[in-house]
Nucleic acid binder design. Structure first.
Lengths: 244, 244
DNA sequence: CTTCCACATAATGTCCGACATAATCAAGTA
DNA sequence: TACTTGATTATGTCGGACATTATGTGGAAG
């Protein structure tokens, strides 16, 4: 059984075309063939032949997507969609330089975004999202009290909040900033364990969001972030990194 | 007169190395040779020879930097640094998908970042930044009252605020989000003229920031953004885009 | 019949060499 | 001096070859 459709429709492309043109054509082809996240793209050589350009050009374009996290590539396994693409979306590569010395600065950027997220979540979330938030929060607290690794549950809880706020951009930005934070954090300090002290506050915050109490939810999120910030300062002082 | 130093020091690189390794090595070489923004990098072929890898690999790495806006490339003119790089900085490509239908969502993300910026600016700015803010604001108001194009002055004023807040990440993020916003805004609606109604509020806001009145400054920025949001809604309604 | 190992296969990863293209520089002429 | 023309040099593009590595498959051993 072939994993992907044997035929893949392409529109021809002129020889002298920019990488952007290639990505646009690929985007249209993906829409046309209704590829979903996780689906496989044709081999590079077939894409090249289909578009009428060289494999190098296809590779350049795909590398660009790979850097953006839109596709994953593996030998033999091929290239797979890791995120949705759509022709009426603009890929804006916001490259932020996160300096290793400025963990606090990175945290500072996340702060207003997280707070606004819970504000919006408290204001906008519907019954479905309320149930999800409550469930994720209960899960987080259970894992935390059991003494297990609470970070995956924490991640899912915050993802639920970001979902509930009704604007996917918040989740996208926060998660990518967080990812960058972890990268520069783990290098000198090992795996991230920040936020331990703030877990007990997550229950009341979930309650406030579900109850639609915007100010209370925002205030609790502020407290949570303040605790995290305190832990960052501690760790940096212990490691003799000085503060910033 | 040679525009760049005739010798360029490299450290050798193993053959099977990731694109990331190449960029790291290049970063160190750039630091070592003290290249600044606007300076020229050696030709790709020299970089390849210096690092002991193929030109294709160098090109892939440079393309990645080009997509991130770190370098610009021109035939014959060569590759030039467009932004600073440093070995203790992590380039985090935050790719946000800005959909054409969601101008309001984009604005919603900018909102908390702008408000936090003026909060921090009001709290942290020193005498130098105060003078700059006052000057830029006066300039903006003068241009506005003269009936000229106030957008460049507006941009400079906001840049001064972002400078004054003490955390360069805010400015970077906001400006790139704004750039993406303009891209998707200008396509259907022509050049951006948003914020006209909010200009008179900029004077009091600058005063509040300079006076260190955090809450007043934040409140005025909120009003400004609310006016902008109103204009976005108007334009979208007129153009029959519906609201989101 | 099932399990496990070795080989064939197919896709990306890497490299090389060649040519195209364009911008800059230099020389030469009006 | 000013303009034009050609040479130079760098990136842009392409095709092909080989390396590397999951995946799949078939045969031998149990």
């Amino acid at each position: 059984m072939p994993e992907r459709s044997p035929v893949f429709a392409f529109e021809a492309l002129s020889s002298g075309c920019s990488s952007r043109d290639v990505l646009d054509a690929l985007t249209r082809a993906i829409e046309l063939n209704q590829l979903k996240v996780g689906d496989r793209l044709p081999p590079e050589i077939e894409i090249a032949q289909g578009l009428g350009i060289s494999r190098a050009k296809v590779r350049e374009a795909l590398t660009s997507w790979q850097n953006m996290g839109i596709v994953t590539r593996n030998k033999k396994a091929g290239t797979r969609l890791a995120a949705e693409v759509s022709s009426n979306a603009i890929q804006l590569p916001v490259t932020v330089k996160l300096e290793a010395e400025s963990l606090l600065r990175t945290h500072a950027v996340r702060r207003p975004l997280e707070i606004e997220t819970v504000r919006l979540a408290a204001k906008n979330c519907d019954e479905t999202h309320r149930r999800i938030i409550i469930a994720r929060c209960a899960e987080l607290l259970a894992v935390y009290e059991a003494g297990e690794d609470w970070r995956p549950a924490d991640y899912r809880f915050h993802a639920a909040l970001q979902d509930a706020c009704g604007n996917p951009l918040f989740g996208q930005l926060i998660q990518q900033i967080q990812q960058g934070f972890n990268e520069i954090y783990e290098a000198p300090f090992g795996r991230a364990h920040l936020g331990q002290a703030s877990i007990p506050l997550h229950g009341p915050m979930a309650d406030a969001v579900v109850a639609g109490d915007v100010e209370q939810a925002a205030a609790l999120m502020e407290q949570i972030l303040a605790l995290v910030e305190g832990e960052i300062r501690e760790v940096m002082q212990v490691m003799g990194q000085g503060d910033d």
